[in-house]
């Protein structure tokens, strides 16, 4: 059954190193010298980095809040993270076009209030807003798992010694959650590297990401060699990060 996955991957590798069945590194060479690819590559990294960091910043208080609830209440809160998690990314992206568009909710409201309107769609802002929305649940889960695994006696001990909530958070809870945050970062970063629908629906010409470029090469220019080479680069980057994630998970036990 794993063949079902390995064979297609083999095809990608094969195609990325060959043109018309002849071995060549031409695909990678031309990619690395292609301004389009280089631009898209950096755009992808930039969007992924910002979206992941914002998602962590939004997700951390969520995880913290959920971790402090009783078990019953916790499962109710979890539903509020799981529902958006299981909502189609296409639906969420579409919702953002409706909210952020020129005739969208926010701009309509601003117009009604006679305030200046903003371009929030077909640009970087739109992509980042929708990507972050998609990534937040993925940031919440590893952080929450880490927070729940922390020894509750540590906080109690600190409290007995006279520490207030803010000090307990910054000196104990937050430093101990480091591995959870790192795991969340790698997870959200890898996921955003592969974003497809969101940049296509909410981004402009300059917000094309690697997945869209693969689509472009496959569909519009029929350059399978270039498309496969990008896929290999994407796969390689993700794999390295995921191995890193594995190591983070391995060291998590000491906490």
């Amino acid at each position: 059954m794993s063949l079902g996955f390995i064979v297609p991957l083999g095809f990608i590798f094969f195609r990325s190193f060959t043109i018309d069945g002849v071995f060549t590194l031409e695909g990678f060479r031309s990619l690395l010298t292609s301004p389009l690819f280089v631009r898209v590559f950096w755009t992808t990294l930039e969007i992924s980095l910002i979206a992941s960091i914002v998602a962590l910043a939004v997700g951390y208080p969520v995880a913290l809040h959920i971790s402090r609830q009783s078990e019953r209440v916790r499962s109710l809160y979890l539903i509020m993270v799981l529902l958006p998690f299981w909502t189609s990314i296409l639906v969420k992206s579409y919702a953002f076009t409706v909210i952020l568009g020129d005739a969208g909710l926010i701009n309509t409201a601003l117009r009604a209030l006679r305030l200046p309107q903003f371009e929030m769609i077909f640009n970087r802002f739109g992509v980042l807003a929708a990507s972050t929305n998609f990534l937040v649940p993925f940031a919440v889960f590893p952080i929450l798992a880490n927070l729940l695994a922390q020894d509750p006696n540590l906080g109690k001990a600190a409290e007995v010694m006279g520490a207030g909530p803010l000090r307990i958070f910054w000196r104990i809870t937050f430093p101990l959650s480091g591995s959870g945050v790192l795991a969340g970062f790698i997870l959200t970063f890898v996921l955003s590297l592969g974003l497809f629908a969101t940049p296509a629906l909410l981004g402009g010409r300059h917000d094309m990401m690697m997945a869209n470029l693969i689509d472009f090469y496959t569909r519009d220019t029929l350059n399978w060699n270039a498309a496969s080479a990008i896929a290999v680069i994407l796969l390689f980057t993700s794999a390295v990060l995921l191995l890193l994630l594995n190591r983070v998970r391995g060291t998590e036990k000491f906490a």
Binding site: V58, H65, M80, V81, A95, N133, A163, P165, L166, R167
Partner: peptide, 29 residues
């Protein structure tokens, strides 16, 4: 001496804003 500390009630507010951000787009549709 006496312990020194401040109160920090923001977590709940931040968490609920995040829930709104997560849920509202699909609900507005």
């Amino acid at each position: 001496g006496k312990p020194v500390h401040w109160r920090f009630p923001l977590t709940g507010i931040m968490a609920w804003s995040a829930f709104a951000f997560l849920l509202l787009p699909s609900l507005i549709i």
